[in-house]
């Protein structure tokens, strides 16, 4: 069964005329910021602060 699926996937892949995306490539993961959206650096800072404080609390305990 698994072999059949794999064969089918390979056949489909061979028929593709457009390349598949490089998932780990440098493409944008989020749409550009628009009106009403928070600044990127504020969001990133909030996340990093949370992780930092949690790591510090873990070390203390």
């Amino acid at each position: 069964m698994l072999k059949q699926v794999s064969k089918k996937a390979k056949t489909l892949a061979a028929k593709r005329r457009y390349p598949l995306p490089d998932l780990f490539g440098p493409h944008p993961r989020v749409i550009p910021r628009g009106e009403g959206d928070l600044p990127d650096e504020d969001i990133q800072r909030a996340i990093e602060d949370l992780f930092r404080e949690r790591a510090a609390a873990t070390q203390t305990s």
Binding site: V30, R33, G36, L38, D42, Q44, A46, I47, L50
Partner: peptide
């Protein structure tokens, strides 16, 4: 917690803010 630091209600984040928070969280 992240939303609180941003003075936002987590259920009221814009779609883009939610995506950016998730992207940043995953990377961190």
């Amino acid at each position: 917690d992240v939303s609180h630091r941003l003075n936002r209600d987590p259920s009221r984040l814009t779609f883009r803010d939610y995506c950016k928070a998730a992207e940043g969280w995953l990377a961190t």
